[in-house]
Amino acid sequence: MKKSTAVNLDKLIEDFSLVEQKITDMKAKNNLLEVRLDETTRMFTLSQTKEKYLREERDELFQAVIGLQHTLKQQCELRVENEQLKKIISDLERQNNSNQQDSAANMERLKMEVAAQITEQQRDTAEVRGELQSKLEAKELEMQEALQKKESELEQMRKRMKEQEREKQTEIIKLQLEFSARLARAQTTTEKVPQQPVGSCTLPLDLYRRKLQYVQEQRQMEVESLRQRVKELEQKNTKSFPECLLKRRKL
């Protein structure tokens, strides 16, 4: 019985050593796996970060591609529009050249018409100027005759005014003499007849005085009227004759 329960220690130690070695190898493998797991986790995190960056870059590139596509589309549309504009400009240039040629032809025609009208106008102007010159010369002669006539009338009016002044002056002198004589007689009568009322003597004197004053006023009014008339005639003649001379000088 004791022989059957005996343990082989050497074998046990050897097995235990093997187990220990395996455990040690497994720990080493586990450590290596942990290192690899850490590295793999770090690489995974880095790959996730890189993937996120690449996604963002992809989105930016996608937006850039969309922008480029839009730009290319606009450029294509602009090219089409430029072609249309070039065609329109070419048509406008051809039309402008045609219009310039027509304008040049019309300008030459208008120049010829204007030259003909200027020649005709100059001829008409010369004829009108000659007619006006003749009319003005006739008018000038007529004005000179009228002026001489007016001057003669003015001279006659001056003479008549002087004659009227002399007549009025003579009449005034006569009235003054008559007034003085009556005044002297009245004074003599008053001295001889002192009892006669004063009113009966002064009444004729007042009448003669008023008559004399009235005659003097009438004379002054007539003389002033004649002077005004002479002045108006002189001004009228002075204005009309230089105007005629001015028109003649303009021609």
Rank of each mutant, 00 (worst) to 15 (best):
A184G: 05
A184C: 01
R185N: 14
R185V: 13
A186W: 01
A186S: 11
A186D: 11
Q187A: 13
Q187I: 05
Q187H: 03
Q187D: 13
T188V: 07
T189P: 00
T189C: 02
T190H: 10
T190A: 15
E191R: 08
K192E: 12
K192C: 02
P194V: 01
P194K: 07
P194C: 01
Q195Y: 12
Q195F: 15
Q195R: 12
Q195N: 15
Q196L: 15
P197G: 10
P197V: 06
P197W: 02
P197L: 10
V198N: 12
G199N: 13
G199T: 14
G199F: 15
G199I: 14
S200G: 04
S200N: 06
S200Q: 09
S200W: 02
C201P: 00
C201E: 02
C201K: 09
L203W: 08
L203P: 02
L203K: 14
P204S: 05
P204K: 01
L205R: 01
D206H: 06
L207V: 07
Y208H: 05
Y208M: 13
R209Y: 03
R209N: 06
R209G: 04
R209Q: 08
R210S: 09
R210D: 10
R210K: 12
R210Q: 12
K211E: 12
L212A: 02
L212W: 02
Q213S: 11
Y214F: 09
Q216G: 00
Q216D: 01
E217A: 05
E217R: 01
Q218W: 03
Q218E: 13
R219A: 15
R219I: 08
R219D: 07
Q220M: 02
E222F: 04
V223C: 01
E224Y: 05
E224C: 02
E224G: 03
S225I: 08
S225L: 12
S225C: 07
S225Q: 14
L226C: 01
L226H: 04
L226G: 00
R227L: 09
R227D: 07
Q228R: 03
V230G: 01
V230Y: 04
V230M: 14
K231E: 15
E232N: 02
L233M: 14
E234P: 00
Q235S: 10
Q235N: 09
Q235P: 00
Q235V: 11
K236Q: 15
N237K: 05
N237L: 15
T238E: 13
T238D: 10
T238G: 07
K239M: 06
K239W: 03
K239D: 10
S240W: 07
S240R: 09
S240H: 08
E243Q: 14
C244G: 06
C244T: 11
L245A: 09
L246W: 01
L246I: 08
L246Q: 11
L246M: 06
K247P: 00
K247R: 13
R248W: 03
R249G: 04
R249N: 06
R249Y: 01
